[in-house]
Simulated scan of single mutants.
Amino acid sequence: MKLLVALEDTGSIKEVECLRGTDTSVQTAKQPISIVNHAAESRATHILKFLVTSDSKYVVAARKGGAIVIYERDTFEEVKRYTNMTANESSAFVSLIQDSTSLIYACCENGVVSVIDLENLNREDNDTQHPIKLELVAPVSCFVLNPNQKGIFAYGGKDNEVKVISITNGKLEQLWESKNVPLDQLRLPVPVWVSGINFLDTDSVKGQSGYHLLVVTRYGHIRMYKTWLKRRPVKTFQPTTKPLRTITHTSTNSNAVSSDSAGLVGKFSLKDGKMVGKFHGSVGFVRALYNYRYSVIATGGLDRYVRVYDLDTCRILAKVFVTSQITDIVMLEDGEKLMEEKMIRKEKEKEQAVKEAEALWEELEKNSSTRKKKKL
């Protein structure tokens, strides 16, 4: 398997190649095939979010301080750097996504969305190169794309209800906004802090159009919305009192996977909210959660380990120490056969190098003994 991992301390991206069963915490276990560092800067400008473009040509990174940098995927040479993409340096990027075309959307906490068209990278016209900027209702903690419908997005944040919007030709239109749940037992409003959103497959009925949303909050809630039915959630659970920070789901939409600030990475049933599986091992806040083709997930956070799990069984498949706190992860491939072939080639190259060194040493010893005989 091959992963790209963004590191906080060095401001770099590490490219990790390893086999299933790799565990750097055990000396006798399999070790990574290779770990290569790319695009290093500093902790002050470390990468908050990054992605690999759909054509695998570029890596786009949103850095602390407001810069968006585009690198060649193969060489990690810098192609383009956009600066001052946030209204101020204290406003961090919360999302970086690509739609089904060549458009990249970078969203900040203050609600500023920068839209970059990759087709304009090589053009000399400054007007076409300059990103389009849109403004959302702030503050924003998450901003996501609907993978099932072009130009549809959702976002939310602290005291900022979930909103579904459309972005077409640089124009933004709000389509729907959620409504908070009823008052609690003390007749107090339930606090709102949306921290993650997923679009599920739409299952609206009787020809009604709408969106099926899976939402987590920093107050430990998991909520489901069907926008064609009502503004309030159709289901709401609170499996933990810790802040939930990440969210993904299984291919059948029957379970959600989320992580909290205390190291829990759990699989929760969307029928009753109960935990049906736990991905063991993480210590501390898990910042990054990547779902690779609904088959495996990769996680990383404060404990400096990248972990890869089987999504169905929750079994750990690989564990690699990367020396720094992790801010984001992208998994590129899970080709076990390709990795094994590469490992075999690497072992053969090592064996060949050892044989050549031994042959050279024997030749030197032979020449040395011949010289001694001549002197005698």
Rank of each mutant, 00 (worst) to 15 (best):
T248H: 10
S209N: 09
S204W: 03
T236N: 08
G210K: 01
H249M: 11
G281A: 06
Y219L: 00
T241H: 04
V234T: 14
K267L: 09
S282F: 00
R231Y: 11
S269A: 06
S269Y: 03
H221E: 09
T240G: 01
H249C: 12
S204Y: 04
Y225S: 12
K230W: 14
V257G: 06
G277I: 05
T202A: 15
L244P: 01
P239E: 01
S261N: 11
I222Y: 02
V205C: 14
T246L: 07
F268N: 05
V276T: 12
D272T: 14
F237E: 07
G273Q: 00
G281D: 08
K278M: 14
W228L: 04
L270V: 13
S269W: 02
T246N: 15
K271Y: 12
A262C: 10
S258G: 01
A256H: 01
T252G: 11
S269M: 03
F199V: 03
Y211V: 03
K235H: 14
I247L: 14
V265Y: 07
F285T: 00
V286S: 02
G284F: 05
Q208P: 10
A256P: 00
D203Y: 05
L200C: 10
M224L: 15
L264Y: 08
V205T: 14
D203C: 06
S254V: 13
S209M: 07
Y211H: 14
S261H: 09
D272Q: 11
G263A: 06
K267Y: 10
N198S: 11
V234N: 03
T236L: 10
F268P: 09
H280A: 13
S251E: 11
K267I: 07
T250N: 11
K278I: 09
V283K: 15
H212I: 05
R232Y: 11
S259M: 12
R287G: 04
A262R: 15
V257Y: 02
K235R: 15
P233M: 05
S259I: 13
R245I: 08
R231H: 13
L270Q: 08
R231P: 05
G263S: 05
P243Q: 03
N198W: 01
Q208A: 13
R287C: 06
S269K: 06
V205Y: 15
L214G: 00
G273N: 01
K278P: 05
M224Q: 15
R245M: 09
H249P: 00
V215N: 07
F285S: 02
Q238N: 14
D260W: 00
P239R: 02
R287D: 00
K226M: 12
I247C: 04
S254P: 11
G281E: 10
K242P: 03
S258D: 02
P233L: 04
G266Q: 08
L270C: 09
S261L: 08
L244M: 05
S269D: 02
F279Q: 08
V265T: 15
H221N: 07
L214M: 03
P233E: 01
T250K: 12
F268G: 04
G273S: 01
A262H: 14
R218G: 02
R287M: 06
F268V: 08
H212A: 07
K278T: 08
K226E: 11
S261F: 04
V283D: 02
H212C: 09
K230I: 13
F199N: 04
R245Y: 08
V215K: 04
K274H: 10
G263D: 02
